[in-house]
């Protein structure tokens, strides 16, 4: 059943696939980012109470939601690399960590900017904000562990264990606003009920979420390719590739 996947366990084949996919992700994400940004910032109506400043939702929500998705993707890659001893999966996990960390930083900063006028404070130690801050530290810890050891395999295992253990935090972040009373509001978009947002505001938000997802895909492919090249620097196919690029 999984036979068709086997050739991609070879670094060269995966590298080529990533190269093929990369422009598609990059172009579609740029188009959707422009559409989503213009739609959200210029055409979506102002909110009843928050007027214009609610528009930061078009950056805050995609970054915050997808930072957690990236974490789950990273954890999945780690699990595959640990159980099947697949080095490429580990390269993918290493590639995703800094992207996720950047997203958490964007979510925290936009959240603080949003909180200042609406709540009246940029930061409060409620369950949502605190558990999310832990996610930032998890990402930073994973990146630090990847760079802490000379031996790549050892570094990956250390970072991998932290990644897997940190998965516990993801449902805590998600449900913190329901389990405890917090200053942060509960989810606007959820799977089970209709979104509590006017549709003229919702569509640009969904566009932006998709645009961010594609952008993350494109960035992951770039970083994944770099990881693969760095880890296979001594292999003949990488040397050939380097020689070819060098000739141009």
């Amino acid at each position: 059943m999984w036979k068709w996947l086997h050739p991609y366990a070879k670094a060269e084949r995966s590298y080529q696939l990533a190269s093929t996919l990369q422009p598609w992700f990059a172009i579609s994400s740029i188009v959707l980012l422009v559409v989503g940004a213009v739609w959200g910032l210029a055409f979506a109506p102002a909110e009843l109470y928050q007027k214009e400043y609610y528009r930061i939702i078009y950056i805050h929500v995609p970054a915050a939601t997808l930072s957690m998705s990236v974490y789950m993707a990273m954890a999945t890659a780690v699990l595959i690399s640990m159980v099947w001893q697949l080095k490429l999966a580990d390269a993918a996990a290493a590639a995703m960590a800094p992207i996720g960390a950047t997203l958490t930083a964007i979510a925290l900063i936009t959240g603080a900017i949003w909180g200042a006028p609406s709540w009246g404070t940029s930061w409060v130690w409620d369950a949502r904000l605190t558990s999310y801050l832990i996610l930032v530290f998890l990402y930073l810890g994973v990146i630090a562990l990847h760079n802490a050891f000379e031996d790549k395999a050892l570094a990956s295992r250390a970072a991998g264990i932290l990644t897997l253990v940190g998965v516990v935090n993801i449902p805590i972040i998600k449900y913190s606003v329901e389990w405890w009373n917090t200053l942060h509001q509960t989810a606007t978009i959820s799977k089970l009920s209709a979104p509590s947002m006017s549709s003229e505001m919702l569509w640009p938000l969904l566009t932006n979420i998709l645009a961010f997802a594609l952008m993350i895909g494109a960035l992951t492919l770039v970083r994944f390719k770099n990881e693969v090249l760095a880890r296979n620097a001594m292999r003949p196919w990488v040397r050939e590739l380097a020689a070819k690029v060098g000739d141009k």
């Binding site: 109506p45 009843l48 709540w119 009246g120 404070t121 509590s196 947002m197």
Partner: peptide, 17 residues
């Protein structure tokens, strides 16, 4: 000594309201 507003998860366009 400090009062914070807790806004809910609803976002409503003024026309709809």
């Amino acid at each position: 000594t400090e009062v914070l507003a807790k806004h809910d998860e609803n976002y409503v366009a003024p026309e709809i309201a």
